[in-house]
Amino acid sequence: MIINHPHLGPRDAQEFVYLGDASLMDRPDWQDENAADNFHDYLYLRDNPDGEHRELWYHEQGDRSWLVVTRNTLTHEITRVELARDVAIAMRRRK
């Protein structure tokens, strides 16, 4: 596969390490009264869609950036690639 890096352009997926569902960026508040349950769900519950999936890839053999890649799990078509850091900052602003 080819991942079109927002800064570096198209790069072979072999340079990347896959982590999984991008929801891993949404780490619960440790002080919430339901923290234990929230962390359990955060860590162990994942959707497994047949179709569009937002997932985390790490450019280990590149610029060391974490990316949020929107990929169709059936066709492997990649429709969007974002810097995870930008996504994380936007998530914080929404909260």
């Binding site: 390490v17 974490w66 850091r85």
Partner: peptide
């Protein structure tokens, strides 16, 4: 060494992007 570096980059970029920290 590799996995820890990757993990800390994840923490830095994905969990706490407001922190000024560089690895």
């Amino acid at each position: 060494a590799g996995p820890v570096f990757r993990h800390m980059e994840f923490c830095r970029q994905c969990l706490w992007p407001d922190m000024d920290v560089h690895l």
